[in-house]
């Protein structure tokens, strides 16, 4: 199944989905050395190499710096999908060069489940759920 969204930052990757039900902040909600999330749905699990999905960004504007640290430490997610990216999340993409797609034609929080295998074409703003 293909779902159309809007490109925030381009790139083509594929991987396993990890869905965080809560709004997310890179500053405070994740350990930048391990990629392990501190709070919410995925508390205790790492978002390393996942297609990381959450509703919206929240909290500290230092998030883009933490995202760069995650990339440098090799623990960043492969891509980010969300309902709506704000300026802070946009700069996470731009600075850390993580592909981001938002504003999907269907609610991404309901359509994708943790463990789904997803192909992300952030250049076109399209994702494809290819299997579990």
């Amino acid at each position: 199944m293909k779902i159309k969204g809007k490109t925030v930052f381009g790139g083509k990757v594929e991987g396993e989905a990890m869905v965080q039900q809560e709004n997310f902040s890179f500053f405070g909600d994740v350990n930048r050395e391990t990629g392990i999330i501190n709070v919410g749905t995925n508390a205790g699990k790492s978002f390393k190499d996942k297609i990381f999905i959450f509703p919206k960004g929240k909290g500290s504007t230092l998030a883009p710096y933490v995202a760069i640290n995650c990339v440098e430490n090799g623990v960043a997610p492969k891509a980010i999908l969300c309902q709506k990216a704000d300026g802070v999340i946009a700069l996470v993409g731009v600075m850390a060069k993580i592909p981001i797609v938002d504003e999907f034609e269907q609610d991404i929080m309901k359509t994708v489940k943790t463990g789904d295998y997803i192909k992300v074409d952030a250049d076109q703003g399209v994702i494809e759920i290819v299997g579990k």
Partner: peptide, 8 residues
């Protein structure tokens, strides 16, 4: 002034 903060 925008709300973005961080590196902006």
């Amino acid at each position: 002034n925008p709300r973005v903060g961080g590196p902006a």
